[in-house]
Write a protein that binds this DNA or RNA. Structure first.
Lengths: 342, 342
DNA sequence: TTGAAAGCGCTAACAT
DNA sequence: ATGTTAGCGCTTTCAA
């Protein structure tokens, strides 16, 4: 006995309640597996809901319960290879809980970050995961007064609003510097993005420089690019730098993508790698494996950062806690573009 | 005269209303720039809201207005290089409108697709963009009865629930087949993913085979892999295939990522490319440019697919329309791994 | 130009 | 085990 006029309006709890001859409240309980409902009623309601094709309205549910099982995740870019992995970590950890990640993208623009933040907060999420420690005052204010756990990820060199999990990029730079020096390289060039947006790249460069200088070595050359990193950009930068400073014996790239472009070029040109020229990148992007020679790199621990951030949210939703910063230890992978110190 | 006890509860319209001495309704009008409000009131309310740090509650707003300015976007994976670009197209087109994309990821699993779909629909989005034409019956039912515009993207070989925009992958396979034949290759091997999940790859293979067979040429060998595509996988497959069928003169990969792995290997091995051995991939992934030699490929039109899908949603929200399928024309880029015919 | 009342679809809290 | 009542924080609609 189907309704002759199928309603264009989405079904409500009340519709299901009427069809199954119980109160809205009972339907609600059945659908959320809450409270005691007799197996008989339970089955009947479930069956009715299913055959009617009822989909609960979370908007109404969230308003009534003032619970929104969403975790806002704000990242600078989707095309970065780095962030998909962070997201996987978050999703993996949230799988099986009531929480779900919702993504916002800032395109590395503080203005857009503010907008995205405002937008996401207006949905009253249960927690917030946001990349980086550098935000506009307005953004920091919003985060601070959001009333939910906020986890700033990727970086631990700075002051988090609430919690942070990541690596010290200064330290990552130092680790690589130490290895470069130990391997006997002395004429080192840096190739990275324009530094006003890339805070973490800047910190790595700082760490590198400090550590080199502590050993009495000056950075020999620097080359910067604008826009998104790409293999092609790495190649271009490398060509420019080696033309300008042909006597370099090491190229340190701000990431693996550009590093691979440079490595490719140097191999083609017949440079003796790692004998006369060493190279290194950053991130340990496994997607680039299988390409010629394996680039030396430092792992940015992305998946673990994602998992940890999600876990910190879950913990704080159970029991409110103080802010906390978790610094992960980045591992150096010497790959095949670094001389074995001897 | 600040409140001595700062409220832990998020601010409401009423709080702003009380502070600025007007009704909630007036505040609402000011904040949404709706209706007529005197400039004086307007300024006062705006100022109050700003200093209080009020963030509107979209949950409540959406429930009251039964308008949710969200477009659900459901894709199989974030790590694919293909989908970030689709998303960019969608975001670009939605920029400046009231609509916002919200992402769901299925990991290529029909079961998870159902879950994600249900979850997203329970937020009553204004529109739905979903990758592929192959869905479970339950998923198709949900899409059909959602009451909002549904755009299935990437593929046009099949029956959409409502609208579709994409390319014909069968045709993409044929286009490449024609070019391969014209370039004079005859011993062709295919390297792709296990086909039960990769519907679009399967369609390309079908198209390739049909077109080859029409010319009296049989596919000489096939190699499949499981899991996600990667450069390393491409290399492995290529090694296996060339060992098994050393007489091949062409390798057709189901995508650029694996293709680049193969190309890299072949170059290292000193194969005469494109003279004795030709290669081609699919997608026109520009991120891989700058790597040794440019791989022949067919563009999958991802950014345009994204933009078109978003536009179709916007159009249909203005004026309801019939379902429509838009087939884009994939362009062949011969790169440097294809003999010039003639 | 402004305000008051009603209600969006659901759930918390309290009946029964 | 089930029902009733009263909102959640906004917007719609109507009145002033």
């Amino acid at each position: 006995m189907a309704n002759p006029i199928p309603p264009r309006r989405p079904l409500t709890l009340r519709d299901v309640a009427e069809q199954s001859g119980v109160s809205e409240m009972t339907v609600s309980r059945v659908l959320r597996a809450r409270g005691d409902v007799s197996p008989a009623t339970r089955e009947r309601v479930l069956e009715t809901a299913r055959t009617m094709g009822y989909v609960p309205n979370k908007i109404a549910g969230s308003l009534a319960s003032s619970r929104v099982n969403l975790v806002a995740v704000i990242i600078p870019s989707m095309g970065n290879l780095v962030f998909p992995e962070v997201l996987s970590g978050i999703s993996a950890e949230l799988e099986g809980t009531v929480l779900q990640p919702v993504l916002g993208v800032t395109d590395y623009r503080p203005g857009k970050e503010e907008k995205v933040l405002y937008e996401m907060l207006s949905w009253r999420p249960s927690g917030m995961i946001i990349a980086g420690l550098e935000h506009s005052d307005a953004s920091r204010a919003m985060l601070a007064s959001s009333g939910v756990p906020v986890i700033e990820i990727m970086d631990t060199d700075g002051d988090p609003v609430d919690c942070a999990v990541g690596i010290s990029h200064d330290r990552a730079g130092r680790i690589m510097a130490k290895q470069i020096l130990e391997s006997g390289y002395r004429k080192i060039g840096f190739l990275g993005s324009v530094m006003d947006r890339d805070h973490r790249g800047r910190k790595r460069l700082q760490g590198l420089k400090s550590e080199l200088e502590a050993a009495g070595v000056q950075l020999a050359d620097e080359e910067f690019y604008e826009g998104t990193s790409s293999i092609a950009k790495g190649r271009e930068m490398t060509i420019a730098m080696l033309k300008r400073s042909p006597n370099l014996d090491f190229l340190y790239y701000s990431n693996d993508i550009t590093g691979v472009g440079g490595l490719q070029y140097c191999l083609e040109q017949g440079y003796d790698i790692p004998g006369k020229l060493g190279l290194a990148g950053f991130n340990a992007v496994t997607e680039l494996n299988g390409l010629s020679r394996k680039l030396a790199t430092v792992d940015s621990c992305r998946a673990e950062i994602g998992r940890t951030a999600a876990r910190m949210i879950l913990d704080r939703l159970e029991t409110p806690q103080e802010g906390e910063t978790i610094e992960l230890t980045p591992m150096l992978d010497p790959g095949e573009t670094l001389r074995t110190p001897g």
